[in-house]
Amino acid sequence: MAIHAISLIVNGTKEQVQVPSNMTLIHTLREKLGYTGTKNGCEAGECGACTVLVDGEPVNSCLVLAVEMDSKEITTIEGLADSGQLTPLQEAFAELNAVQCGYCTPGMLMAATALLSRNPYPSEGDIVEALVGNLCRCTGYQRIIDAVQKASRNGGAR
């Protein structure tokens, strides 16, 4: 299989990496670059656990090939908190216990971050629509909705 040298900007840092043509972004992030915060729940685009931002847009990282991502800006869960300072969204998730096992949480936070940056004051319907592809088996979702609303009042994604 052909190997490609690509460069990505992950959480603001330029990364050079060699990837086989069939390697998806999730495996590149997790196995090649060590960003294991991004979670793998299905590898089929059906659970949202692997959501990252590509040039600010939420993307299922299990569905895109790394080679297509050459020179793009990727934000992962590790890129949200800045020198220990949580984003209002992370803070709201923590404060409201919108987290149980935490496996869906990185994907949820990335999808919600994208929502708040394009729509700082989403309605409940907007939140549901933005997160409908992110499955959670633990929380029952209500606290996730509440946390997004709380973060929206407290200054949005950042």
Partner: peptide, 21 residues
């Protein structure tokens, strides 16, 4: 009181078995 594990879980630092290198 806040969960002991919540900061790790909202920052992507929580380690699950597949994350061990």
């Amino acid at each position: 009181v806040p969960r002991t594990d919540v900061i790790d879980k909202v920052t992507g630092c929580a380690v699950f078995v597949d994350d061990i290198q």
